[in-house]
Amino acid sequence: MTEPVRDSVEVALELDEKEVYSHIAHESAEDIVRIISSLDAERARLHGEVIYYRDDWDDLIRERIAKGKRHTAFDFYNPALLDIWERKVREIKKARLREKMAYASIAVFIILTVIATALLRQPYVILGLAVLPAVFLIWSLTREKLDLIYYELTQFFIDELRELVEKHSLRPERYRFKIFSGDYFGVEIRKSGTGIFAIVSPQSRVVTSAETGSND
């Protein structure tokens, strides 16, 4: 018979102070690597890439917020992460809503020009067709906006993971994650038999790389 799943608090109560923080850091790091991969997978899909990675980061964080079988490690480690995540999610939803409303407005305008053309026997439909290029412009601007949001959010969690690993002396290799874009700072790309993954780089190495790049 399998043992019942215990939440973070139950486990933490059995540990000393140092072990408590190490335990919290470990659970937080496990959550963060899933969030990083999920966010970057969404960003890659935004670029039209076919990504088979599935792990709903939205459900993950909501699961961690709920005080059910498990408590969220973020409650103990950095509650501000949840506030940042909520704000970015609202930005994503607003951008998608604005895009849909813009498409709907264009569609209504074209329909009205068609009706006007039929009733008044004047080529008003030409005006409707003239706004069609705006569809591509709206699509392009929305994708740029969403890409920036996903990038900022993913980079933020990468930075948080690196800080967590360094502060609590965790092994970066233990918290490797799938990554689909190559423009993030502070990560090292590794290859294994199962494919490509990434780990966070030590802060000193990131600073050195940045300084080297600026001197070139």
Rank of each mutant, 00 (worst) to 15 (best):
V206E: 07
E173N: 01
Q155F: 07
A25T: 10
E27L: 10
P133D: 12
D7H: 05
F157H: 13
R64P: 00
E19A: 03
Y53T: 01
I115W: 14
Q203I: 09
R62M: 08
Y52I: 03
F197V: 06
S140D: 09
S105W: 01
T208A: 05
E63M: 10
V187N: 01
I110V: 14
P123R: 13
Y124T: 14
N215F: 07
E166S: 11
K94D: 14
F109W: 05
K167H: 12
Y175S: 09
Y151C: 05
A198L: 01
R143W: 11
A80F: 11
I126P: 12
K100T: 08
L13E: 03
I189P: 13
L146A: 10
I51Y: 03
E188K: 03
E160V: 09
N78D: 14
Y53F: 10
A12H: 03
I149K: 02
I158F: 03
E166R: 10
I36G: 00
L13I: 04
V89H: 04
H26P: 06
V135D: 01
R176A: 08
Y77T: 09
D56H: 13
L129K: 09
T113H: 15
A66F: 06
P123H: 11
E17P: 07
V108S: 11
I126V: 15
L97M: 12
Y124H: 13
E17V: 05
Q155G: 12
K18M: 04
L39M: 11
A44C: 11
L129E: 11
R70K: 13
W57M: 03
D16I: 07
F177Y: 04
I149C: 08
R34V: 07
P79H: 03
A41F: 08
I115C: 11
T72M: 07
G193W: 15
E91N: 10
R34P: 00
D55M: 00
